[in-house]
Design a protein around this nucleic acid. Structure first.
Lengths: 216, 216
DNA sequence: AGCAGTTTGTGAAAACATTAACGACTTCCT
DNA sequence: AGGAAGTCGTTAATGTTTTCACAAACTGCT
């Protein structure tokens, strides 16, 4: 069942949710068809790359016509498991955690933050973005079968909290702390490091000149 | 002056701030030397990749010894222009914007958020994370020579605000909105799309199995 | 029906990135 | 001083991703 899927390049897989979202936009605008060129302009991905990406799933388009929005959408819905919602836990209801909780994830999305944890007694028992905040001491007890965790704690807490999450059975962690956490090989970690993203942007700005600004 | 620099692969450039941060940690721990193997374990990057990355800047290490932490650090400081602080503006002081403002960027960092803008009169005039919040109507007037902007506005505002920022002379934008913004060719944009990161993680979790969990 | 115009899907090439492997050199122990 | 152990810097091999470019096939106009 996953035989074909495994072959999809990671770079492609990362773009799928992006495509999915824009197709949804088009669909709600009542658009019936779309070409790789149009889509390219909207998502800022080369049109050949888009066609290549789609082609991993078979021949989804029609020559001389483009792609049928509804068909493509229903195809992606299946592929991205949009029907089956993945439960997510969030640990650390600071500013960043709150931002996540308030984010409108339910729209066009296969993930839902089911529960949040924080160490601050003032936050426990409140509801943020429709999600109940529990005390972090109850993590093991209340996290149940949640497979994915978003880690938005202070970096000193990152590794201890990771260890607890792993013990509690979490199999993927989205780590927003600057700490590079250590996990067993069966646990998947993605790092999003805001400080590094900003520094990298500055580095590119200074060292990788783009086209000159056009005067007039 | 940039002749050599231009050849550094983008993938390497993205890792430089990460290396820099960990070297700082080591230095403040009083460590004098470090090997690519040790560093590899700390930052979770293959040691051969680390050696390759460093080698773009010349021979920074010593065979049989490793790298001198202080020397490496002073080298990176120059390379990453740590002495020269880049001014950053933040637009949209919501949860995510607030998270950024409260982030301790000044430590080990070549970037500083100098000014923030928001449309909400209640926030204007306050100080968040030591940064003054101005009304977004005054953006053009007060943004001055700021080169980089962090965009944390609602996605409906993304393109209009981008157009204003570009007109005001900003040359790089870190875009946290789900909108894919359009800019002239001389402006650099990096997208960080929280919803997509989460969806991609879930997709990898389901379709790219890692090593099986070890029982016992 | 026929033809000009459009757009896909993909083979082949190019560009980019990671990893293995090892010679050369350094350290440090005895 | 000599040799075992350690580590870099780099060549070559491998893997991944993007892009080009075009035949094939469809659309839609007249």
């Amino acid at each position: 069942m996953d035989i074909e899927q495994t072959k999809i390049p990671q770079a492609t897989a990362k773009r799928l949710p992006l495509y999915y979202r824009f197709l949804n936009n088009l669909h709600s605008q009542g658009k019936l068809r779309v070409s790789s060129k149009e889509l390219s302009e909207a998502v800022k991905v080369d049109s050949a790359t888009i066609r290549r990406d789609f082609s991993y799933f078979g021949a989804l388009g029609k020559k001389g016509y483009g792609y049928n929005v509804e068909y493509l959408l229903s195809f992606f819905r299946k592929t991205l498991d949009q029907d089956e919602t993945t439960k997510v836990a969030l640990v650390g209801v600071g500013n960043l955690g709150t931002a996540f909780l308030n984010y409108n994830f339910t729209k066009n999305n296969n993930t839902r933050i089911e529960i949040a944890f924080d160490a601050d007694q003032k936050r426990v028992g409140t509801e943020v973005g429709g999600v109940q905040v529990e005390h972090v001491d109850d993590l093991e007890e209340k996290i149940n079968d949640t497979a994915v965790a978003i880690l938005t704690v202070p970096s000193s807490e990152a590794q201890p909290m990771t260890d607890r999450l792993v013990k509690a059975g979490v199999s993927a962690i989205l780590n927003f702390t600057p700490a590079r956490i250590t996990v067993p090989p069966h646990v998947r970690v993605h790092h999003i490091d805001l400080s590094i993203e900003l520094q990298a942007l500055v580095y590119f700005l200074k060292h990788y000149p783009l086209e000159e600004e056009q005067e007039g």
